[in-house]
Design a protein around this nucleic acid. Structure first.
Length: 678
DNA sequence: ACGGCTTAAACC
DNA sequence: TGGTTTAAG
């Protein structure tokens, strides 16, 4: 799984910043009276006080923990109360019947936008960030080296430096100061010293602007920085000088290393008798490769020596969005309509997050994926995997809901096998759904200056289904009556939280004729607004009962799974085009890319910095208009067709003028762009 | 048949 | 590719 990468050139300065019990801090900021009290965040309070997902350090002192007996089990709220009667339990917000993490996501974004200022920044998780501070450290070393410092910040002096030994009589901060100011230090150590100062400053800034404390690790690579950030928590920072690496790793339990906390780490223990990272040193690179393959073998050999060339990726935004829920034990879903109800909820949340992403970050997702977990109750092979399915993503809540449900049904048929749709004589369905999730991936930036394109997608996500557009073809009338799928978001769910034994008088998918109904009469031929692929058609392509499609988009029935080309594909290509060295681009392209920069920098409400976009090359799309399938263009509103054309052929831009060059962000076309929301 | 819910990434 | 698997917070 891990991949070995050669150690990069010179000594880098890498920091890993980790928020302290983040969810708790977010809740304490919202409710300041909770500050300083033992606090935990729980979700699903109804059963045994809910499961703990974050625990404050005060509560940890009372013995409230996430892990229990070394086994992977979290404490329940009730157990936490027992261990620490004073503990304050805060519930995770709930929306649409599921946990809603948006509060924590946006709090995480606040932190990222602060940390991204000083160097290359990678959002590693909702509450963790890697920073490459090499440039900043080198600058500091050149301009204002630590040895010249008169005053040293308190936060700097509280740093932990691995491997320094304090002389007798000295206090700790004194030895830290000495180490940082050491004149005869290694260049690597001097760079780390600069890193210490920079990170201390950043952490102070984070605290000031967000009220959140964090811990940090500073080292020469990501692996060591990550290791260090966890060594002194909360609200402290730890440095790993080069000279301290060996000793640190020699006694470190192998499972503490990132990537080795799972099966690979267990295999190292049981198969090779390796308990500490130091134990790994005895194995030759080839020996490790024999056991774990070329890549993993080399990777293991390297990390045993503290070598890791993994770079900090300049990525401030998530690469995918997902919304999921589990239905454990008796709550497993038994009916199609109940599944549809939950898919509708999940799709709603996903769509909402996609809209925010579009608005705040000008990004479009292009793939929708459905995951589910299931078991079969009566059948013997009850542990077959429920397959995942994906399709091109169409913007708009109801479209996502439809597509998700269709993906589910396709997967279900595969899961159940050929007899799935007609259980002989058995009225009871044999499947149970224990988990559902929908996710959106392959997210690409919208190219600069295409404000009308953005508005197009925005309108797609808000437009209601038109009359001529068959939206509800999937469920038979009686089914939609009985199930609680909501087309109007305000309608409250009819389906109870738990799938109690209540039987719905719904035609199930096992009913043969209805089943055919489910898939035959759909299709988007009459839906002009959808420029993305006819997803359901693709999914049905392996059905024997498949009926003829009439949409002109399906040109070649033979090519069964060839997705429709869509505008997102073009964006994808644009985003993937490698930088070109040529500087021969036309002025209009240059102007468009500068306009992009202006565009993003003044989108004040966006907390994320578009770092990647800044670095994107100023070249064209590497796409000729003739290479784009004509149908892509035909699907689009004519205004967008024109705008795209002007992108692909900047020279032939009809309305190129000084004005659009100057204010940049809106193309001339966008100005008389009509409302798309019919 | 799981702590729930998310994200990332490698592999085939 | 898409789909599966592993890992982590």
């Amino acid at each position: 799984m891990p991949v070995a990468r050669p150690e990069t050139s010179d000594a880098r300065v890498i920091a890993h910043v980790d928020m302290d019990c983040f969810y708790v801090q977010v809740e304490q900021r919202k409710q300041p009276e909770l500050r300083g009290l033992p606090t935990a965040v729980v979700q699903y309070n109804e059963w045994q006080g809910g499961g703990l997902i974050a625990v404050s350090y005060e509560a940890r002192k009372c013995g409230v923990k996430r892990v229990f007996d070394g086994v992977f089990r979290s404490m329940r709220g009730d157990e936490a109360k027992a261990a620490c009667p004073e503990i304050q339990l805060v519930q995770v917000p709930v929306a649409r019947g599921k946990a809603d993490l948006n509060l924590y996501r946006s709090a995480g974004s606040e932190v990222v936008s602060i940390l991204a200022q000083s160097g290359k920044c990678e959002r590693a998780s909702i509450d963790e960030v890697y920073l490459d501070l090499t440039d900043a450290a080198e600058s500091m070393l050149a301009d204002a080296p630590p040895e010249s410092l008169e005053l040293m910040d308190e936060e700097v002096l509280k740093s932990h430096i691995l491997g320094i030994r304090r002389k007798d009589g000295d206090d700790f901060e004194e030895s830290v100061r000495d180490w940082i100011c050491r004149k005869d230090a290694d260049r690597r150590d001097k760079l780390l010293s600069c890193g210490i100062i920079i990170v201390a400053e950043l952490r102070k800034q984070v605290l000031k602007e967000t009220e959140f404390t964090c811990s940090a690790g500073i080292a020469h690579n990501k692996m060591l920085a990550k290791l260090a950030s966890g060594m002194n928590k909360p609200a402290q920072q730890t440095v790993v000088p080069y000279a301290a690496v060996q000793e640190l790793l020699s006694s470190l339990p192998i499972k503490k290393m990132k990537q080795l906390g799972g099966k690979l780490g267990t295999s190292l223990q049981t198969d090779l008798g390796v308990d500490t990272v130091g134990d790994l040193l005895q194995f030759s690179e080839t020996k490790l490769q024999e056991h774990y393959g070329i890549n993993t073998g080399t990777w293991l050999w390297n990390i045993a020596r503290g070598i890791s060339g993994e770079e900090v990726q300049g990525r401030l935004l998530p690469k995918s969005h997902g919304s999921g829920k589990t239905f454990p034990g008796p709550r497993a879903l038994k009916s199609l309509s109940n599944v549809q109800h939950w898919l509708n909820q999940l799709s709603e949340e996903l769509s909402e997050r996609l809209s925010s992403d579009l608005e705040q970050n000008k990004r479009i997702a292009s793939t929708l994926t459905l995951h589910a977990s299931a078991f079969k109750s009566r059948d013997s092979d009850s542990h077959k995997k429920f397959p995942s399915k994906s399709c091109p993503l169409r913007y708009g809540v109801t479209k996502i809901q439809e597509d998700a449900f269709n993906l589910f049904q396709a997967a279900l048929r595969e899961y159940m096998g050929p007899f799935g749709s007609k259980p002989q004589g058995n009225k009871q369905e044999t499947w149970r759904i224990t988990g559902l999730s929908v996710s959106a991936s392959k997210i690409v930036d919208i190219p600069s200056g295409t404000s009308s394109i953005m508005r197009y997608f925005q309108s797609q996500s808000t437009s209601r289904p038109a009359d001529g557009c068959v939206q509800d073809h999937v469920v038979t009338p009686s089914a939609s009556e009985g199930c609680s799928e909501q087309r109007s978001t305000e309608t409250q769910a009819v389906i109870p939280e738990e799938d109690t034994g209540v039987t719905y008088t719904l035609p199930n998918f096992e009913t043969p004729d209805k089943d055919i109904d489910l898939v035959s009469e759909k299709d988007v031929v009459s839906c002009p607004s959808s420029e993305a692929a006819d997803v359901p058609a693709q999914l049905e392509s392996n059905r024997s009962t498949q009926t003829k499609r009439t949409g002109r988009k399906i040109n070649n029935p033979k090519e069964k799974n060839r997705g429709m080309p869509s505008i997102v594909d073009i964006f994808k290509n644009y985003n993937a085009t490698p930088p070109s060295k040529q500087e021969t681009q036309e002025d209009s392209t240059v102007s468009s890319s500068t306009s992009k920069r202006a565009n993003f920098s003044n989108s004040s409400h966006s907390s994320e910095v578009k770092q990647e976009s800044e670095e994107r090359r100023q070249t064209d799309w590497g796409y000729k208009i003739g290479e784009i399938d004509q149908s892509v263009f035909d699907e689009l509103p004519v205004e967008i067709q024109r705008e795209l054309r002007s992108f692909l052929h900047p020279n032939k831009r009809l309305n190129t003028n000084s004005k659009s060059k100057g204010d940049g962000s809106t193309s001339s076309i966008a100005r008389y762009f009509p409302p798309l929301n019919r």
